[in-house]
Nucleic acid binder design. Structure first.
Length: 807
DNA sequence: AGCTAAAATGTTTTT
DNA sequence: CATTTTAGCT
């Protein structure tokens, strides 16, 4: 009796001891294993840690902490031993406590949904770390984004709702071209109804799980929506006929699968006993429905989120999902994590100052034990060029003065277009940098083309991809012939490729074109055959060769373009080779899925020593010691489209909150007097979000280049900080750059293909001076990424590029 | 069919 | 302004 009581108390103390690096709220979250759990986690409050530790806890100890079960082998001796265990090392204690485990969950019963694929990988890596080895078990945990997890389900059971296992995913631009096609077929004039808006209305409808009929009935008298519903209906039937899913379908069709097929739902509900969802504030209705379905049996669902960081409304995210979580799940336990471990007090107070202007928040007060830190620097510059130079100068100054490597700096902006001016400045001052976003690797034309071939090999009814590459390189199947073929195909109920195989039967197709079509089919046949017995990388190489695409690229007259494209194709083969190596059971189909679902941040490599540039959206979940926020102007951030709409302004403000809270030590806000946008010069006032930061937390200066003045809004700024020092080193930002010490002594070491290391300074005959950013082994050669002073980031092959090392 | 040159057009954020 | 679409020519 007393024995039992003492045992339970000792047991809990030992667990508290095991997790003594967490705060009490975090521990409570880890222990809350069963039942619905909502964690309201402020920025930098260690939510990922909690997520990871909780999953590890569930697998290792189950509900051991809360359970009042007393094993019959408990006696005085055991209690004595337990008292001693308090002094064990963490590892020993962790191992010791396993004997008290109650109702442990097998790793395969855990599902963790994250916002990026990268985060999914990190969760597994961190759990492996906790378990002390890369165990077989950890790999059985299912982690991924909503999209990747749903794809997995659809590959398994998609046939039940009419999808072949080899379905392909079409991205936004593929789906745009299909919608355009549908609108043409329905004789809808693009002038009255833009493809873009149709696409977005359809997408939002799918986020809400609306079918074309649902949309139509919702339309009422709205002619525009009625038209869209008509397009949606055709678009959807064509997607289905081609075994294609767009991004929204991946979720929506999974929900349909789980709704319509009880046996599948039952199977998955029973399998996933423990479900966690990260970044819950950015889920849409379809995703909410999905989590409700999956967690329907056990109701062991934990969601983590922060209503102040909801920034994906444009993608259908509904903040109500997190606000009303406890209404969807009765007896929800709510835990708030409000202690911030990331930022200085100044940064935190600045962020709080901004976000407090929003209404309708759940409300929370972030606090930190860390020091005050430095003031937020707000600087006005004449234009974007000066803005870029200024950022470079601060980076080079700070990196030297404080011995900070470049990876500690991030430049976060509202839109991708802002990156250009900053990139140029960085390239000039030879600061190594990396740009995430903008044109994704897989969105490059040549990469998309080859991937389209692969998609056709994998899923021959994919007419969208077929249209894209049927005449690239030219093979005499022009737009007109293809049009005729697809009209015939639609009439006869074939896929276009099938029809092309028998093109000669149709008099409407010219004999020349028919011959070319048949040859094309044979080409695809042979590639398909080849793919059965070869790796993905080999297949890609074969595609590039056999289709004549490689030759076409080799014949590009302009040198830079030719090199750029061929190096992209090499990189594609390289990526596939990596995939072949890493994947358990590599298949073309799975490779294509990965290609479709990777995001930019997934490829962000923290180990590369380079300044990183990305949008604030991409930076969600990341942190950096020093953060630059350029373009803090009305009309840029908040964007001019949002200024009239209070709701959208609130979303922009949340974005500003996310931006500021990325920083650990310092924030540099810049705004410019005149900015070139869309060919026009604009004079934007400083962003309201910068003004909302309490004045005493800021240090405001204006660059003196065009005369002007310096003013301190903060009356009592302690002086002495010299990072912002307008006149001295302004013109030459490369003073502290990696090149500076080499520019005078230009003694080069002429060696054809010596091995280069990361950080080496090199000279290229074409591009001039640069720094090696990364080196990757690739088919007996080495692929270097080099940032050049004048030309920015280039990818070069070791043997081919004739890079000379400079000392 | 395919090329070139002129015209139109669009501009947030992303899986 | 920078990309994409179209018209007109070969």
């Amino acid at each position: 009796m007393d024995l039992a009581k003492e045992f339970l108390s000792l047991k809990r103390k030992l667990f508290d001891k095991l997790y003594d690096d967490l705060n009490s709220k975090q521990r409570e979250a880890v222990y809350s294993v069963n039942g619905p759990l909502l964690i309201l986690a402020g920025a930098g409050s260690g939510k990922t840690t909690v997520l990871v530790r909780r999953i590890a806890h569930i697998i290792r100890y189950g509900d051991a902490y809360n359970s009042s079960y007393v094993p019959d082998w408990i006696n005085e001796a055991v209690l004595e031993e337990m008292k001693k265990a308090a002094d064990y090392s963490k590892d020993d204690l962790a191992a010791y406590l396993i004997r008290f485990a109650v109702d442990r969950a097998p790793a395969w019963s855990v599902l963790g949904i994250t916002f990026t694929n990268k985060a999914a990988g990190e969760i597994k890596a961190r759990i492996s770390e906790i378990f002390g080895e890369v165990s077989e078990e950890v790999s059985e945990i299912t982690t991924g984004t909503f999209h990747s997890v749903c794809c997995r389900f659809l590959r398994m059971y998609g046939d039940k709702i009419g999808y072949d296992k080899n379905f392909s995913i079409c991205d936004t631009s593929d789906s745009k071209s299909l919608i355009t096609d549908c609108m043409n077929r329905l004789n809808i004039d693009e002038k009255n109804l833009s493809v873009k808006s149709v696409q977005s209305i359809i997408s939002r409808a799918k986020d809400k799980l609306q079918t074309p009929d649902d949309l139509l009935s919702e339309a009422g008298q709205d002619i525009k929506i009625k038209k869209v519903a008509e397009v949606y209906s055709l678009y959807q039937s064509r997607l289905e006929a081609q075994n294609l899913l767009d991004f929204d379908d991946i979720i929506m069709q999974t929900v349909r699968l789980l709704t319509e097929h009880e046996e599948v739902r039952e199977k998955l509900q029973s399998k996933y006993r423990y479900i966690s969802v990260d970044e819950y504030q950015d889920t849409n209705y379809a995703q909410l429905k999905l989590t409700l379905l999956l967690s329907g049996k056990y109701r062991n669902i934990m969601v983590v989120g922060d209503d102040d960081q909801s920034i994906y409304k444009f993608r259908g995210a509904v903040i109500e999902n997190i606000l009303n979580f406890d209404k969807n799940y009765s007896d929800t336990k709510i835990i708030r994590l409000e202690e911030n471990y990331r930022s200085t007090q100044t940064i935190l107070n600045a962020a709080n100052g901004v976000i407090s202007n929003n209404k309708g928040r759940l409300g929370k007060t972030l606090w930190t034990q860390s020091e005050k830190g430095e003031l937020i620097s707000i600087k006005k510059l004449p234009d974007q060029v000066a803005e870029g130079k200024y950022i470079c100068r601060v980076i080079s100054d700070t990196s030297v003065k404080e011995d900070l490597s470049f990876r500690n700096f991030a430049v976060l902006y509202r839109m991708n277009a802002q990156s250009r001016a900053i990139e140029q400045a960085l390239a000039k001052s030879a600061i190594p940098y990396r740009v995430l976003g903008g044109l994704r690797f897989f969105d490059r034309m040549e990469v998309k083309d080859i991937v389209s071939y692969l998609n056709i090999i994998n899923n021959p009814v994919d007419d969208v991809r077929l249209k894209r590459i049927v005449n690239t390189p030219r093979r005499g199947i022009g737009a007109k012939s293809f049009d005729v073929a697809s009209t015939l195909a639609a009439a006869e109920g074939y896929s276009v490729l099938e029809l092309m195989r028998n093109a000669k039967k149709y008099p409407a197709i010219s004999a020349v074109a028919a011959k070319a079509m048949q040859d094309f089919c044979y080409l695809i046949d042979s590639l398909k055959e080849y793919s059965y017995s070869h790796t993905t990388a080999e297949t890609i190489a074969k595609v590039i060769d056999a289709t004549g695409y490689g030759e076409m690229v080799a014949d590009i007259p302009e040198r830079t373009e030719r090199e750029e494209r061929s190096s992209n194709l090499e990189e594609l083969i390289n990526t596939a080779g990596q995939y072949d190596e890493d994947a358990e059971d590599p298949t073309l189909s799975e490779f294509l899925e990965e290609v479709a679902l990777v995001s930019d941040v997934d490829k962000y490599d923290e180990s590369a020593d380079a300044v990183v540039l990305m949008t604030i959206h991409s930076a969600k979940g990341l942190e950096f010691p020093v953060v630059f926020l350029p373009g803090m102007e009305e009309g840029v951030f908040p964007g001019y489209q949002t200024i009239m709409n209070p709701e959208e302004i609130e979303e922009e403000r949340r974005l500003a909150y996310v931006a500021i809270t990325r920083a650990k030590k310092r924030v540099y806000i810049t705004h410019v007097g005149s900015r070139m946008m869309n060919g026009k010069t604009q004079m934007n006032p400083i962003s309201r979000f910068a003004e909302e930061i309490p004045a005493e937390l800021t240090e405001r200066t204006e660059d003196e280049q065009y005369g002007a003045f310096t003013r301190n809004r903060a009356a009592f700024v302690s002086t002495g900080r010299s990072i912002v020092n307008p006149s001295s080193s302004y013109t030459r930002s490369s003073v502290y750059s990696p090149f500076s010490s080499h520019t005078k002594s230009a003694k080069t070491t002429p060696q054809a293909s010596e091995k280069l290391d990361i950080g080496d300074n090199v000279i290229h005959s074409m591009f001039g001076k640069g720094v090696v950013l990364s080196a990757k082994e690739m088919g007996g050669d080495i692929l270097y990424e080099v940032v050049f002073e004048e030309h920015g980031l280039k990818k070069l092959m070791g043997t081919y590029a004739k890079l000379k090392k400079v000392n």
